Simulated scan of single mutants.
Amino acid sequence: MKALVLLGSMMLGSQVMAQKVGSVDTAFILIDPDHKIVVDAYDDPKVKGVTCYVSRAKTGGIKGGLGLAEDKAEASISCRQVGPISFEKPLKQQEEVFNQSLSILFKKLRIVRMVDVERNTLVYLTYSDKLIDGSPQNSVTAVPVDRTTMIPVK
């Protein structure tokens, strides 16, 4: 039992949490919550000064209210410099930096950071790991870093 509690606390400690920025209703549902588009903010855990804003659909209704609905596999991302950019240690060339469960059936929203060394730019890609018609929906954004601050890469 103690091992399960310890494992659970270690997993929660390493998880990056989204901060809700806001939402808009897109369809009225008489019973329980409406369908929405939500906007969440994610601070890059390895790059100080960069925040990613992700908008995505959130299903309402009875299933949505109970957390059993399957949200659409569509999202949009915009990452911005929100302060001085700094790096504690070198970054991997490509790394998943966030993921969030969108359904109880293994679908996740994922955000991957890539480093474009030639242009000294951080590129962020969001996608869902559930395929739609053989091709995943995705969105990309980039944050250029001033040439005086070179991005350290492993």
Results as ranks from 00 to 15, higher is better:
Q81G: 11
G60R: 04
L66G: 06
S86D: 06
K89H: 02
E88Q: 12
S101T: 15
R80W: 05
R80M: 10
V47K: 06
H35A: 06
V50F: 06
F87N: 08
I29P: 00
F106N: 14
L66A: 14
K48R: 14
G83P: 02
L109T: 11
S78Y: 06
K36G: 05
K20T: 12
A27E: 11
S86A: 09
G61H: 02
L68A: 15
R110F: 03
S14K: 13
Q15E: 07
K36S: 15
F106P: 00
G67H: 11
F106G: 09
G61M: 02
R80S: 07
K92A: 07
R80F: 04
N99E: 13
G65C: 06
A41N: 01
A18E: 09
G65H: 03
K92S: 08
N99V: 01
K48V: 10
F98R: 01
N99T: 14
E95I: 08
I31W: 11
G64K: 00
G60A: 03
G13N: 09
I37N: 02
A69P: 01
K46P: 00
Q93P: 04
L30R: 13
R56I: 08
V39D: 06
E95Q: 12
V21I: 15
G67C: 04
V82L: 00
G61L: 05
K48W: 02
A69E: 02
V24L: 00
K89D: 05
K36D: 07
Q15L: 12
G60K: 02
D34S: 05
P33T: 10
Q19N: 14
F98W: 13
I37A: 06
I104R: 15
L30K: 14
P90L: 07
S55N: 14
K36P: 04
V16M: 11
Q100S: 13
F28Q: 12
E96K: 10
